[in-house]
Computed example of a mutant assay.
Amino acid sequence: MSSLELSDLLVGYGGNAVCPPVSLTLAPGEVVAVIGTNGTGKSTLLRTVLGLQEPLSGTVSAFGRAVDERERGFRARVASVLDDDAFFPGVTVREHLVLTARGHGVPDAGVVTDQVLDHVGITGHGGAMPHTLSSGQRRRFLLASALVRPRDLLVLDEPEQRLDTAMRARLADLLRAEADAGTAVLFATHDDRLLAGTGASALHLSDDGAVLLRPDDAPGVLAGFR
């Protein structure tokens, strides 16, 4: 069974499409990066995939069922990071992550949280309040919020934003490890090195249509599809 399936999915606002129809099947352990210039609908596509807005037409399903963000089973299997700062008020970074992990039934939530804090490079900020973090540290914290919980599908909107070069390289390794563990990964990006580092296929959105490029179909060409 596929993790995600889009069939002639058209997304937009007020009846106006922001990108061409998209058809895509994402299997467990597969990585697809959504690329294209600003305004080509990458973020809107991801929000629709997550059930946060209704499609204009076409269908989107996850794990063989129509996407419904209200459904507990869907939320339990899908982790995401959009360009939103969302965290529990009044708790520290580590406390937030432990609560997230426990809420998703993770055994040894504290141990897992400490491992994830190390993976994203903010171990020293576990006792800080989220609002005191720098923009780059908050981005790492949001990534940790997705990585500290179980997931079969990981959806990320430009996860490289506000990250330094070293962390971007680490992020590529983390996403590759997700895929190797069987997680399906869908992310939007403007970073060619992140694209190459994950070994992702590239879904290019433009006014001319949606084109899926496999890594071995067009070596050295993906950087031009931005």
Results as ranks from 00 to 15, higher is better:
Ala210Trp: 13
Arg170His: 14
Thr165Ser: 13
Pro55Met: 00
Gly58Pro: 01
Leu222Tyr: 04
Arg65Ile: 04
Leu45Tyr: 07
Gly220Lys: 00
Arg151Lys: 13
Ser135Ile: 15
Asn16Gln: 15
Gln161Ala: 11
Ala200Ile: 06
Asp207Tyr: 09
Arg138Cys: 02
Thr198Cys: 14
Ala109Phe: 06
Ser134Thr: 10
His204Leu: 12
Ile35Val: 15
Arg77Leu: 09
Phe88Ala: 08
Glu5Ala: 10
Leu46Ser: 08
Arg72Trp: 11
Thr165Asn: 12
Asp173Ile: 13
Arg75Ala: 09
Arg70Pro: 10
Arg176Trp: 05
Glu5Arg: 12
Thr132Pro: 00
Gln115Gly: 13
Ser43Lys: 04
Gly136Asn: 02
Val78Cys: 00
Arg77Thr: 01
Thr165Gly: 06
Arg226Ile: 12
Val49Leu: 08
Leu153Lys: 00
Gly124Arg: 09
Val112Cys: 08
Cys19Ala: 08
Ala79Ser: 15
Val11Tyr: 01
Asp180Cys: 06
Arg168Ala: 05
Asp217Ile: 03
Arg176Ile: 05
Thr165Phe: 14
Ile122Val: 06
Glu54Pro: 02
Ser57Thr: 00
Gly124Cys: 02
Gly197Met: 02
Leu6Trp: 01
Pro55Phe: 03
Phe87Met: 09
Leu175Cys: 03
Ala169Phe: 15
Val111Thr: 14
Thr113Gly: 04
Asp83His: 12
Phe187Ala: 01
Ser7Ala: 15
